[in-house]
């Protein structure tokens, strides 16, 4: 069977398995980021273009906690999402909340502008080369899987992000809070009439979406260069993931995130030059055949 696989793919099977696994790991980042975007879009109808900058802020806050306060990775995993989430709450209260009555485009432009300003600020303060951040001692080292050498930290990223994605889905689909949130998207006035503070709920939802981006940023800090443009590279792909999965569909964005990670990983073996474009080709095909996305409701 393995030999057959090797013959038809032209790539040694161990290498193929390795690439699928690496694709899943990248997919974990796509899934976590697109999850935050989907939550924000689903409940606020805002296309949050600040998401890449907020992902980057998560990584920078992790670095700041370590360098300035001596607080390591595990603290960063808790504190960075809270701190960056709080900045999200401020942004939502001060600016984004004024745009809910207007067309989507205004929210998109505002968040895009805020993202550029945040990135520019970090670039001026810290330059473009990036800052060092080590893998925590508990997660360094690697497992020999036979077909490849698997760093422990990458395994942790996949498991942790799966748990976060599942937990978010459960909160939104299976709890009373989630039911309020979903009801508020359908008819805010009615939910408010039942005594639920809808504006506060929306603010906290934005904060939670931003915190998810920051959490992904902390996960990324030990393996990617912590630099101001680290979110820019990722966020365009993540938007494509959200569009392919279906805007606002939580399960859709998670599954598409992991799936596209694998497809991109395989492209890196067969046609490395095209690995940056393959996701957009898929996006074009999906938009032409299923405009609402694979899991979206038309």
């Amino acid at each position: 069977m393995l030999e057959f696989l090797e013959t038809i793919t032209g790539v040694p099977t161990p290498l193929l398995f390795g690439q699928i696994l690496l694709g899943l790991i990248n997919g974990a980042f796509y899934a976590m980021l697109s999850l935050g975007l989907a939550v924000i879009f689903g409940l606020l109808n805002i296309i949050n273009f600040t998401h890449g900058a907020q992902f980057m802020m998560g990584a920078f806050v992790a670095w700041m906690l370590l360098t300035w306060l001596g607080l390591g990775y595990w603290w960063a995993l808790i504190l960075a999402p809270l701190i960056v989430g709080a900045t999200g709450v401020v942004i939502e209260r001060l600016m984004i909340s004024r745009l809910y009555k207007l067309d989507h485009l205004y929210g998109l432009l505002l968040t895009f502008g805020i993202g550029l300003m945040i990135e520019g600020f970090f670039r001026n303060q810290y330059g473009s080369s990036g800052l060092p951040y080590r893998i925590p001692a508990e997660l360094s080292g690697a497992w020999d899987l036979g077909f490849m050498f698997m760093p422990v930290y990458r395994g942790w990223v996949v498991v942790f992000s799966l748990v976060v994605c599942l937990a978010t889905w459960l909160v939104i689909e299976k709890t009373r809070l989630g039911a309020y949130l979903r009801a508020a998207t359908e008819n805010a006035a009615l939910v408010q009439a039942f005594g639920v503070n809808v504006p506060r709920m929306i603010t906290l939802t934005y904060g939670a979406g931003v915190a998810l981006a920051a959490l992904a940023g902390v996960l990324a800090a030990p393996i990617y260069s912590v630099n101001p443009q680290m979110g820019t590279n990722l966020i365009i792909v993540v938007f494509a993931v959200v569009v392919i999965g279906g805007m606002g569909s939580i399960l859709g964005s998670v599954l598409t995130g992991f799936g596209l990670g694998v497809i991109e990983g395989l492209t890196k073996v067969y046609w490395p030059e095209a690995s940056a474009t393959v996701i957009f080709v898929i996006m074009a095909i999906v938009l032409l055949t299923r405009p609402a996305g694979l899991f979206g409701r038309a």
Binding site: L15, L22, N26, M148, R154, N233, K268, S275
Partner: peptide, 10 residues
């Protein structure tokens, strides 16, 4: 490109 692990494994 920010993830080079695939290329490093190749």
């Amino acid at each position: 490109t920010s993830d080079f692990s695939s290329f490093l494994v190749q």
